[in-house]
Amino acid sequence: MGSLLVYVESSEGQFTTGSLGVAAKAAALAGELSTSVTAVVVGPGASERAATLGSHGVGRVLAVDGARGDEPSATEVADAVVAAVRAESPLLVMANASVLGAEVAGLVAGRLGLGIATDAVDASISDGSVIVTKPAFDDSVWVECGWAGEGETAGVALFRAGSFSADPVNGATAEVVGIEPEGSERHVEFLGRAESTDEGVDITQADVLVGAGRGLGGPDQFGVVESLAQALGGAVATTRAVVDAGWYDYSTQVGQTGKTVAPKLYIAAGISGAIQHKIGMQSSGTIVAINKDANAPIFEYADFGVVGDLFEVLPKLEQAIRESS
């Protein structure tokens, strides 16, 4: 029986927790199927740290050490994964939905003509095959997906970041072998990183955060959240949409590509509550949300939600809080 193939991603010289979580999940599934987990790792130094993947349940690692830039690009990783699929005929290809992971999953599915299930949050065995569970239609239903492949490899599964714990399961060591990637003719070039703009308040230390999303409407409108944060002795946090638009500093961003926070109180204002935001703030003690849209996903996990206009609610809230203290 084929193995389960996992792309274990490296970022700045370390394996990412999201992809280690997928490896751990694969190991649990492999146990049930009496097969094994093979990982693909790519990038500078990847083969040197690859043996440690044994402690996450990986039996074998196929490693590509070089990268054209400082970091491997999606095309290079896809070249490695495609070569691994051809060599191993795995049952399934699994990856974590990071920015790079999603590109790789798409490229691999396209090159090999495989079905792809995205946004999965769990996987299980049904009639001897792996199936995945994914929320759909704004999380209003949960769907079970499988694949109808022709070859031995059923398809590609891409998991929501943060779906699985990445804790090591034992102290085992994985076998590491090199692999010759299949060459793409056209590549993505990694051109570098922007300077970090970390400045001001450390939001991870605040007891109270007022989260501001795109519902604020523009960079000049942040007065309402700043003064509420001040009244509560807290700080302002933001979403990727707000930061990418240049409305607020990146150091305040919460979520998958921002910070992970766990304040006693998180007040989300004008935030839709996308999963990539949620995974950065779901451990908050209490979550309050104000959003105009009653269907916004944030209401699924807020302890107290208000369907309303933040510009109506927040000033009154600030006043009530100042009066009560």
């Binding site: 990412t16 990694f190 990183r193 922007a194 990727r240 930061v243 998958q256 590509t257």
Partner: peptide, 8 residues
């Protein structure tokens, strides 16, 4: 934006 910050 990627996991390790803004990249080009």
């Amino acid at each position: 934006q990627a996991e390790a910050g803004y990249e080009k």
